[in-house]
Design a protein around this nucleic acid. Sequence first.
DNA 1: GTGAAAGCGCTAACAA
DNA 2: TTGTTAGCGCTTTCAC
Lengths: 361, 361
Amino acid sequence: MTQSASNPASPATLDTPRKPTVMDVAKKVGLSHTAVSLALRGRPGVSPKQQQRIRQAAAELGYQPKAAAQMLRSGRTGYIGLLLEPGGPEMLTHSSSSNAILSYFLHACQHSQRRYNVEFYHQNPDGFEPPHQLAGSLVDGLLLGGFIDAQLRKWLLQQPHYKWVSVDEPGPYAVLSDINIGVAQAVKELYDLGHRRIAYGGGPYHYRQHEIGRMGYLTGMSNLGLPVDESWIGRFGSMPQVPQMQNSRNQRQWVKNLLKQPNYPTAFIGNGIGVARNTLVEALTMGLRVPEDISIMAVGVSTSAMDTCPAFSTIENDYRTIMNTALDMLVQLVDGNTVKQNEVHVNPVIVMRESVGPIQA
Amino acid sequence: MTQSASNPASPATLDTPRKPTVMDVAKKVGLSHTAVSLALRGRPGVSPKQQQRIRQAAAELGYQPKAAAQMLRSGRTGYIGLLLEPGGPEMLTHSSSSNAILSYFLHACQHSQRRYNVEFYHQNPDGFEPPHQLAGSLVDGLLLGGFIDAQLRKWLLQQPHYKWVSVDEPGPYAVLSDINIGVAQAVKELYDLGHRRIAYGGGPYHYRQHEIGRMGYLTGMSNLGLPVDESWIGRFGSMPQVPQMQNSRNQRQWVKNLLKQPNYPTAFIGNGIGVARNTLVEALTMGLRVPEDISIMAVGVSTSAMDTCPAFSTIENDYRTIMNTALDMLVQLVDGNTVKQNEVHVNPVIVMRESVGPIQA
DNA sequence: GTGAAAGCGCTAACAA
DNA sequence: TTGTTAGCGCTTTCAC
């Protein structure tokens, strides 16, 4: 650690010595700071030999360019933003879809070597306030993850400065997942295994995913000529109003009534792993076996589905493709290129696991 | 939107007009840019009347200070960093403890009006690379959330520039949760409900929480003079090596063997909601009732615990207190104040729910 | 291929 | 109370 010795100037307190700058590196190798800047960014204009010396000197000094200065001068931040909705003040964990969006966003960024900045958008109680990322110009563009405050969307629409792409919600540039197609396909797969009596449960239906999921179920059933009994469609409370434990109890009660019927369903599709789990637990409590007596499928993410044994078969948003697509789209916008499609639809994936089996003779 | 009209200078392309700067606001009100800067930050030196005019003009222009410039000039970023470990390249959702840490971090930041920057630390395959937050000096200080790469910790220890506080892992400044105390207390509470045969399962034991949880179980049992049978302590695989589904199956198999014994336990404490859920499912499959035949407790977060019915009684890290404490500590460090305690211990909380009941006569 | 100079937008020190 | 000046650390432009 020789950097304090090589930084004789400037008021550096003893306990926190100044970080080295381009100038320090330049002095060390006896070149101009311009050369250092170019070399470290791999730009042409510096001979390979000098480049090597500069790199080494930088490494020895522990030099790291200050992002603020780079942003200020270059007019680009080099960062991509992700804006998510937090669970809310009292709901502590954010939803599993936010979680998946975040995970695959990170994955995509790592893959394409992009720096990111994740922000969780909180509405300000006194008056609208835009997200810091944008207000402070800390990102070149933004991915809006899932459902986001309407006021913010409105504000964004009338801002000329910002580039953004919406994920799984509509917008001028958007990537959407057609979970309805997945649900309809799940119905078909259950049908092929011999199932004819298939029930469905989900909600709250003001979320796009839940609403189109329900529609997918209806479509799937009607495509196969299967009758739909409205009492076989569960509608579960909107999270913020109904406390989670009560919601969970309601689900079990509904499933209990469903399975008490003489001709109870042989298969169930739940929109959300929680719904599926409560169905599993209720079935087991009633002495039914899964999947022998009843098959269960869930709309949800893999990790949650495999948490419990038997692992759930799932209808999953293909967040990997979704986020890669969205990031590509945003990069095009940021780079000023024209974007081919401003709305891309991504098909969900079906993964069969232990909770589904053929109907028993 | 009059900003383009009031920005006659500079090469602003038509589609992305330049964002207004302090100068634009200053011109509009006929004052110096210094006055504008002071006024908008609420610093003394500008008369209330002018302040009012400046604020209004800024609002009309949609002026927002550029964070990069503020950081560069002031030498402070005004941002607090949180560094988390992502689930890994293939494990997509990060752990529920990361999730809770993140949620309460956001909560604490919102509460104390602090800006934050969340980064997920990825090891670079070719050589060590420090997190961008620090490398780019984008934060004034850092909270290390949970288990973080050993190489990074080592690097941090020898860096003089950075202020950081470790959450639930040891470090020069750290906030730790004594989950062992919670587990021991849970044993006591089960004892008070009449339970004498109490089993425990957890792992992987290289995580601090799992290791000290197991110790808490041993302490709790020995405090009450209850005998410990080693075969009643489940040891479940280390996540990365054993695939999740297999791990889940192993857990059920272990529980099955446990509950097949003639004198099987009347209570079970699982370190992790997953373990608890698999125990529930296996018990139900074997025809046992929860909590009548067996009570189940889990170390884990509320939201996961209430996801399934019956809701699990939990031993929870008090992440609210943990994160508030850690943030306070970091702010002290950043402000250059001396910190009273450099290691704070926080007691966990026990929440009783439906999965636990008194022993049946 | 290299170096000098300008300046991104802001804040902090000073002078009026 | 106000305006002027300098400069944070870097990238860019332009002359050599």
